[in-house]
Design a protein around this nucleic acid. Sequence first.
DNA 1: ATGAAAGCGCTAACAT
DNA 2: ATGTTAGCGCTTTCAT
Lengths: 354, 354
Amino acid sequence: MPRVVGRGPGAPAPRSADVARVAGVSRKTVSRVLNNEPYVSDDVRRRVLEAAGELGYRLNHAARALASGRNRSIGVVALGTAGYGTASLLVGVERAVRDAGYALRVVNTVDGDPKGIAGAVTSLMEQGVDGVVVSEPIVEGEVSVRVDVPVLFVGAPPAFTAGQTLTVSVGAYALARAATEHLLELGHATVHHLAGPQGWYASKDRVEGWRAALAARGVHEPPVVEGDWSPASGYAAGRELASDPSVTAVFAAGDEMAIGLIHAFREAGRRVPEDISVVGFDGSPVFAYVSPPLTTVRQPFDAAAREGIRLLVHAIEEPETELPAAGEPPVELVVRGSTAPPPSHQGQTALRTT
Amino acid sequence: MPRVVGRGPGAPAPRSADVARVAGVSRKTVSRVLNNEPYVSDDVRRRVLEAAGELGYRLNHAARALASGRNRSIGVVALGTAGYGTASLLVGVERAVRDAGYALRVVNTVDGDPKGIAGAVTSLMEQGVDGVVVSEPIVEGEVSVRVDVPVLFVGAPPAFTAGQTLTVSVGAYALARAATEHLLELGHATVHHLAGPQGWYASKDRVEGWRAALAARGVHEPPVVEGDWSPASGYAAGRELASDPSVTAVFAAGDEMAIGLIHAFREAGRRVPEDISVVGFDGSPVFAYVSPPLTTVRQPFDAAAREGIRLLVHAIEEPETELPAAGEPPVELVVRGSTAPPPSHQGQTALRTT
DNA sequence: ATGAAAGCGCTAACAT
DNA sequence: ATGTTAGCGCTTTCAT
């Protein structure tokens, strides 16, 4: 009678002892081969591999983790939404983690609040991950968890203390600044900003980049409009902004919000880019195919994920040596059709007196 | 000196024996409390929980898995792309898995080919998952892996044999049929189809639904145009289709391809929806805010994920009892602005003689 | 270059 | 309702 329900027909799964028996070596030697340890003759190595293949042997990660204290797995706390940004980052992280020979554990937080994050991290710790990645969308607030493994924060400053905290930037500040400067260089008197929700680091960086670009030119800083990343919130903001004739350029903190914004402008009879220019943020490829094609800045998700995981794995595997510093990611502005010089200066000033 | 690198300052992590000692009970009793087993007095339960809290005790999943043979984890083989569909499904799966009290292991396959899938599944088996989810994007071909746990296929027929295979539909066939029928009811003589890449189940279902709608009305079935899900491939297909004046309605197998398609049509001087109607597939919310707003069919990702995981967990926990059957998901057609009746009949026939 | 023995932290089966 | 004993499958010493 089979020991466990669910096992295929017949025998229980082979263990390393079975491989050892078939190969005519000790269990420890099998272990050595499987872990690519030195001091195994090529002949023995071959025999072990052969026996393993024959038996259809599969290593038991749980047993290995228990015995060695290392899991070769990395946990990621992601935001439970299906946006292009979140998803891209997750895909990049998965790839980088797998390439590093680690397994991935994912826990989503519905909303990025501290309590949700604490719970997610605790769950990951129980699962025995060797390192944790907290992905960009995280809100401010005290997160209280005891974490004794290295933690990588992507696109945000450390939100809690851990065995070791690392950060990798997605260059949001520089990207926001570049987006705003692009608009300013086009001749716009100022640039309005449709931000993400308050309290999010992702929002903050972008606001600051925008603000810095404005300050560098000494131009007036209009009040920030706040959205929630959704196209609907961009649309709502657009209806508001459209009624203000002084608005000729808007930098939106997300591509989808930008799309909603443009839609509202056009409905209100304001042409884009002739009357109002709009720049998005993310670099989602599909918006190159809408009218007008969306000018945006591309977030270097892949590069950030690769770089971040490199750092994290280093911290896991060689905690003593110093970390090779991460370079700032490149700033990539994608100019498409949603930006243009402002309407004639006189018309603009005339309207602004309103 | 600390035993393991990375542990916080001081003591090693507390184990269940420590909790037992502090609470003044046996290790097994601690185990009973932690697993919510019956036959524990309320008083003891309270004491154990208290001791655990005090010590900051965290269960060791690896040890539990090794001892019990069960991991309380589910693995998902996802496609390594950041599309709205894939990401939505993954988010839904993560949520459903967590709600069921399981952890999630994710392995992406860059391309959904059989070899990649086999590798992904093997990796998951080594990680000791109790069940596997193979998400929709999977290509045809023989996948040869030995799997002794239940496997759930989302939106595709079983691609390999396992301890037990389950399927949950996303209703792609019915959705494709509904999309095509919508166009036909508008009065279009026929409907062209921009499909996904050949070999993908996701493409196949949609082709068949489209074909069935056409056949039911006895209308001519034009040749299928093939894309690769990307907006660029939709654009390329659009340039081709735009030169054929008989084309007045296209059903695209994905929203992003539909967007590319529309862009190409407009560039070629064909208005949407006046000259050509386009229906997408997925239901991505942002395309309600482009011009014209995209008519589409909504894939019930959340419902499918919930339903699928319910089935899978049932198969894991009660392999004996029969599975409660899954109802077909609702068909949701979202009519927006990219569809309209065809141009006047006479103009159309005149052109068609070309 | 290889092996023997011990034990990782937990749960299972059987006590009581 | 609670405790005892014996492993789960692997890696770690430490021998050889």
